[in-house]
Amino acid sequence: MLELRGVNTFYGQIQALRDVTLEIGEGEIITLIGANGAGKTTTLMSVSGVVPPKSGEILYRGKPIHTLSPDRIVALGLCQVPEGRLIFPELTVLENLDMGAFMRTDKDGVKRDLEYIFGLFPILAKRRRQAGGTLSGGEQQMLAISRALMARPRLLLLDEPSLGLAPLVIKQIFEIVQKINADGTTVFLVEQNANLALKIAHRGYVMENGRITLTDTGQALLANEDVKKAYLGL
């Protein structure tokens, strides 16, 4: 579904990604783990067109997208939930969700997806008239995911969804990610909570200093001694 081939991405003169090659099959949950500054967020930013690669290719369903603008990439069915949530704090929950669907013209489909969202996150239904900035951190993360889902993505890019959240909320978020995947959305998950991320992943990649250094199934990476020492605290 998605393939990165030898991607090199820079911020000015600083190289953030070095010859990154990875692939995501349709229907998978793929996790990218690594330390702070490893290049995980830059990988997502390159896929979504926010920080285009200097060289290499990014293919979506076999067609290059690395030269496209972010809005055209969203229109193809790729949508990113950014680190730190970045909801619109002054807008209500409903208005935030409407922003997620701004490129859509199928009003009936938007209405159905809104009901689907409220089924996933009943608390958002209760808060629908409330300003996004007044929600708790966990509720804001739910809203950020929901806003992306309103674009009806085929591939959902999630950047650190557990960041700053309480353990019970993190558990709920990860259960919802699995539910979204089971309902047909492919997921590319960047996450520092390697233990939880690998438990729900079909496959995983390990990134160090902008390079992919290891790839395997989620379960195999959980059992890998180097991964245990570096990322699982074991």
Rank of each mutant, 00 (worst) to 15 (best):
residue 75 A to H: 13
residue 94 L to S: 10
residue 69 S to V: 09
residue 2 L to P: 03
residue 156 L to K: 08
residue 1 M to Y: 05
residue 144 A to M: 10
residue 142 M to L: 12
residue 211 R to A: 14
residue 17 L to V: 01
residue 103 M to T: 09
residue 121 F to S: 06
residue 39 G to W: 02
residue 210 G to L: 07
residue 84 G to N: 09
residue 69 S to P: 09
residue 214 L to V: 00
residue 145 I to A: 00
residue 87 I to W: 02
residue 190 V to M: 02
residue 178 Q to A: 08
residue 23 E to A: 12
residue 164 G to L: 08
residue 55 S to P: 02
residue 13 Q to G: 11
residue 221 L to S: 11
residue 10 F to L: 10
residue 69 S to N: 10
residue 174 F to D: 09
residue 8 N to T: 09
residue 97 L to F: 10
residue 9 T to F: 13
residue 101 A to M: 03
residue 77 G to L: 15
residue 234 L to Y: 10
residue 17 L to Y: 01
residue 50 V to T: 12
residue 125 A to D: 07
residue 26 E to L: 08
residue 214 L to N: 02
residue 75 A to F: 13
residue 154 R to V: 07
residue 44 L to G: 10
residue 185 T to M: 10
residue 234 L to F: 14
residue 168 L to G: 01
residue 168 L to K: 14
residue 206 V to F: 14
residue 166 A to P: 01
residue 30 I to Q: 15
residue 213 T to M: 15
residue 222 L to M: 09
residue 218 G to K: 14
residue 45 M to H: 15
residue 126 K to H: 15
residue 203 R to L: 00
residue 62 G to K: 00
residue 64 P to S: 11
residue 172 Q to E: 07
residue 196 L to T: 08
residue 196 L to Q: 10
residue 206 V to E: 13
residue 155 L to G: 02
residue 101 A to T: 01
